[in-house]
């Protein structure tokens, strides 16, 4: 048997980590984004920038 790991409890953790939660945020923003794009177009829609930013963050989290 190879060496066993030891660590402090708890030994299990939830699957809902930051990436999953941020993805949820993006999904929740979708309706608002669509409406925003419809009414304001791509240039003035702040939300689009926000979603872009969140995706960028997810990318960072994914790499670390």
């Amino acid at each position: 048997m190879s060496l066993l790991k030891v660590s402090a409890p708890p030994h299990i953790s939830t699957k809902n980590d930051t990436n999953v939660i941020m993805l949820d945020v993006i999904i929740a923003l979708m309706p608002a984004l669509i409406v925003g794009l419809l009414f304001l177009g791509t240039e003035q829609c702040l939300l689009l920038q926000l979603v872009r930013f969140l995706l960028y963050w997810l990318n960072i989290c994914g790499q670390s």
């Binding site: 066993l4 790991k5 030891v6 409890p9 030994h11």
Partner: peptide
């Protein structure tokens, strides 16, 4: 299967041991 951790007690509060 090859175990990587052996815990005495439950997974929330148990202690991981280094040998059996």
């Amino acid at each position: 299967k090859e175990p990587s951790k052996i815990i005495l007690g439950g997974p929330m509060m148990g202690t991981a041991v280094s040998n059996t």
